[in-house]
Nucleic acid binder design. Structure first.
Length: 886
DNA sequence: TAGAGTGAG
DNA sequence: CTTTACTCACTCTAT
């Protein structure tokens, strides 16, 4: 026999409200990391979880009140009047309640002019007709009027996960009346909380007694003449209208015009993925742990369809066609050193997989891979390209890259795991790498090779389907050119740079290592002597104890976990604490030693003496590149000790040079362009010193000679601040001036550069309207907090809105230049090689005799990569090491 | 694995 | 009234 249908109906508004007040005394401990209160969500969650487990419904719905006005307020405006204002801490949780319900897989509904009660009443009646069992959950006892033989009503008591069940019998027992008589009782006695008046001097007790005798309000008035004379009878007669009105108000509608039917409410269990996201968002750690990801995987695994593919050992021409996808699997991040463990290719209809050696030794595979006319889709084209190139195959004809496409559509979608990206687009037919290979030290190819190839086949299918989908979305966003003309070709340029690598003089590093080790020892001894004991200087915690407890220096700043020992704090202590100078020196050298000397030595390729970084094209939210393993975009330069590290970066051959070109003030030039500020533009067009020019305008100086170095420094800080989305505090900290003075600088700046001010207002307004900002080339960044009620989140989003188009457009420009540069080098007979990009500069190595030509070429390409309304200016230098190319 | 700290543009 | 400049990666300690 089929399981009997059971409908669960929850009065969302009242339960959420109950949950909020049940946990109100702990309001402040229920907050997520963004400061959102979560107590109502938490209580509601636990109630639902419990009721689902107990009742195991086949259908479910959560009903909400739609708003303040309902058909009841139309005929009785005072209905529910006089209620205290809903606390903001409660209302801020309501949108997330809907997310929670999506996670539970429960439908929710609200209907204009009706209350949640009426939706529940109507559905309960419909379920009754179809002989469903019904469970109603509410915090409001009014709902008990719905009880029937097949309808029970759970009313929450103290807290929300505990409920009291009302059935026909229990109501009879407790009140001596039938459920429907509850409305008659309200008619007579009224209800304070809903502001239903009732009849004077009649309370619940009296009402019940009267109903025992007369059955209903109407029945009572039919026999009112039989009642013996009393004050009560008088009241009843005088207030007949009120009694009938009150009854009408208390009556739950059974025929509300719902746009949903029972069929819409089928309950299929939770969407574990969404629940996990919800728990993460709310910082519900205990729930998260309980519902570990293996459960999610199991759910998805169970729903995953079989994948058809052919594992092949001999490759034939028929297997390779135009418009296929290709995936080259490696189990570690670093594709320069990773081992390929499997290869798969094909289209939606036909998928092939083989062991790496089969493909690497196949001329047919090589011919197809290297055929630029044979179009290919990939997940991460740079990774794929490099892996194949290591085996003598030069991948060509790539027209799609799922990873890059997802990143351009939303810079937050930058996972290296295909399944994570697929999931974002509601594609679940591919497993995560972690579930197939495991994680950490246990990561390995599954024993059953079939599983590996099935996984790869699923990736091919996902790439085939999703690349097309995402390309359409790119087109909708006007991002096709950004993808096709910039990001995709750039991937190849970057691959070549990474593979070229930069030569590192490890002997020089070893020498420095020895010198620094000695210095560190000396400093260590001095610090211990000052402190009077030994301790771990690298531990901010231990250092804090020494400085602020043992030695008793004043605490200037605190961190979440204890005393702050950051540079700015230590610098303030320097005068009174001799130990501090040593600590600062120690920190500086320890950083150089561990990160730049030991760190770099570890990643030098022993055979070639080179390091091969990886440029990530999908990490930075602004569109910049990032560099990892090693990070070659933060090699020291500001302080001499660190700068010496650059002496170890040398050309690959003797008599070659390191050549570096950088854009001068590219971000301010971009600002001049996008803001169209006349004065800023003029300064660049006339080739003025921009910081001096700003200084003259902001400080009202007449002659260039009046700009002292100090004034120029201040103006420079203001210019930086402008690009970052300035605040008076930030500027005051940077310049060591008062907040008031900083504000004065900013005000004057905006007065003198009205176009910049206008731009900032416009870009923030646009971000608030559209939810995202864009760069010159339509790179897009969504700012979900831009309309947040939380000041911090909103301010941060506003500054980001100002900064991203500037930083991002600069990133766009240098990317264009890089693509053109590689092309220009290939077209020339130069041996010069592009090696690195550091946000606004490009680093090359080249034979000495090419330097002159190279400089002309690079300058021309970089300066004309993009035409702005102000000129772009490039400055270059070269030397026998990176250090000397300053 | 998070947080503090520091390197770069 | 809040808080306090944008973008990253790496190393270390401590849990």
């Amino acid at each position: 026999m089929a399981k009997k249908n059971k409908l669960l109906l929850i009065d969302g508004s009242s339960v959420a409200f109950r949950a909020f007040f049940a946990l109100h005394n702990q309001l402040e401990s229920f907050k997520n990391r963004n400061g959102l209160h979560t107590n109502a969500l938490y209580g509601f969650h636990n109630m639902i979880e419990k009721i689902l487990k107990e009742e195991n419904p086949t259908h479910a719905l959560v009903a909400f009140d739609a708003g303040k006005t309902t058909f009841r307020t139309e005929f009785y405006p005072e209905y529910k009047a006089g209620r205290a204002k809903t606390p903001r801490e409660f209302t801020e949780q309501m949108p997330y309640l809907r997310e929670l319900l999506k996670g539970f897989g429960i439908y929710y509904y609200e209907l204009e002019n009706y209350e949640a009660d009426d939706i529940i009443g109507t559905l309960s009646a419909q379920a009754d007709e179809k002989a469903f069992d019904v469970v109603v959950v509410s915090g409001d006892r009014d709902l008990t009027q719905l009880a029937k033989d097949n309808v029970k009503v759970d009313i929450t008591v103290k807290g929300v996960s505990e409920t009291k069940t009302y059935t026909v019998e229990s109501i009879k027992e407790e009140y001596g009346i039938a459920p429907l008589q509850i409305i008659d009782m309200k008619g007579l006695a009224g209800d304070k909380s809903d502001n239903i008046p009732g009849v004077t001097k009649i309370g619940e007790k009296t009402a019940l007694t009267l109903l025992q005798e007369y059955g209903t309000v109407e029945g009572l008035y039919e026999h009112i003449d039989d009642m013996k004379k009393s004050k009560r009878k008088e009241n009843l007669i005088n207030e007949k209208e009120t009694a009938l009105l009150s009854k009408k108000l208390a009556t739950i509608i059974k025929d509300a015009p719902l746009a949903i039917t029972l069929n819409d409410l089928v309950y299929n269990g939770p969407d574990t993925k969404k629940l996990i996201d919800f728990y993460k968002e709310m910082d519900f750690k205990s729930h998260l742990n309980r519902l570990d990801t293996s459960e999610l995987e199991e759910t998805l695994e169970a729903n995953r369809s079989d994948i058809q593919f052919q594992k092949v050992t001999i490759l034939t021409d028929e297997m390779f066609k135009d418009n296929q996808s290709i995936y080259v699997e490696m189990l570690t991040d670093n594709y320069h050193t990773a081992q390929v463990v499997g290869i798969s290719w094909g289209n939606e209809e036909k998928i092939y997989a083989c062991e790496p050696e089969v493909a690497f030794h196949s001329d047919i595979f090589k011919k197809w891979a290297e055929d630029g006319h044979s179009k290919k889709k990939t997940f991460d084209s740079k990774r794929t390209y490099v892996a194949l190139k290591h085996h003598g195959i030069e991948l060509k004809g790539v027209v799609a890259d799922l990873s890059l496409e997802a990143y351009l559509l939303d810079v937050k979608d930058n996972s290296s795991d295909l399944a994570a990206i697929a999931e974002e687009y509601d594609y679940f037919d591919v497993a995560t790498d972690e579930s197939v290979y495991g994680k950490g030290a246990k990561r390995k190819v599954p024993e059953d090779k079939e599983q590996l190839y099935a996984h790869l086949a699923r990736k091919i299918k996902a790439i085939a389907i999703l690349c097309d989908q995402l390309m359409e979305k790119l087109e909708e966003n006007q991002q096709t050119e950004l993808f096709t003309d910039i990001e995709l070709p750039l991937a190849n340029v970057l691959a070549d740079m990474e593979m070229a690598g930069i030569t590192v003089n490890s002997k020089r590093l070893e020498e420095m290592k020895g010198e620094f080790a000695e210095k560190l020892q000396e400093l260590e001894q001095k610090i211990y002597a000052e402190a009077g004991e030994t301790f771990n200087i690298n531990s901010p915690k231990q250092l804090g104890v020494i400085l602020f407890e043992k030695m008793g220096y004043p605490v200037i700043k605190k961190t979440k976990t204890g005393y702050s020992t950051a540079v700015d704090v230590l610098e303030q202590l320097q005068d009174q604490a001799p130990i501090v100078a040593y600590i600062l020196q120690y920190r500086q050298i320890a950083k150089i030693q561990s990160t730049y000397i030991e760190g770099l030595l570890k990643v030098i390729d022993k055979k070639t003496g080179k390091v091969h970084t990886r440029f990530s094209q999908t990490t930075a939210r602004t569109g910049r590149l990032s560099s990892v393993d090693p990070n070659l975009q933060n090699i020291p330069i500001r302080l001499e000790e660190g700068r010496k590290i650059r002496q170890a970066f040398v050309p690959r051959e003797e008599n070659w040079r390191i050549f570096a070109s950088d854009y001068s003030q590219i971000e301010l030039r971009v600002l001049a362009h996008v803001s169209d500020d006349q004065h800023l533009k003029e300064a660049f067009i006339e080739g003025q010193d921009i910081h001096a020019s700003t200084a003259m305008r902001v400080f009202g100086l007449e002659k260039a000679e009046d700009v002292t170095p100090n004034i120029r420094r201040q103006a420079k800080a203001v210019n930086f601040g402008i690009v970052y989305g300035i605040s008076d505090y930030g500027l005051s900290q940077n310049l060591g001036i008062s907040r008031k003075e900083a504000q004065q600088f900013i005000d004057t700046y905006f007065e003198k550069y009205p176009g910049v001010k206008q731009y900032m207002e416009d870009v923030v307004r646009e971000a608030k309207d559209k939810g995202y900002v864009e760069t010159l080339f339509h790179r897009r960044r969504y700012l979900s907090d831009i309309n947040s009620r939380n000041y911090n989140l909103r301010s941060f989003a506003e500054r980001t809105a100002i900064n991203t188009p500037i930083q991002g457009s600069a990133a766009d420009i240098i990317k264009v230049a890089m693509i053109q540069m590689e092309k220009a080098l290939k077209a020339s007979d130069l041996r010069a090689t592009m090696l690195l990009q550091v946000h606004d500069e490009l680093i090359f190595e080249a034979p000495e005799e090419e330097i002159e030509t190279l400089e002309k070429l690079v300058t021309d390409v970089m300066e004309h990569a993009v035409a702005l309304s102000v000129p772009l200016l490039v400055e270059s230098d070269n030397g026998k090491s990176w250090y000397d190319a300053k």
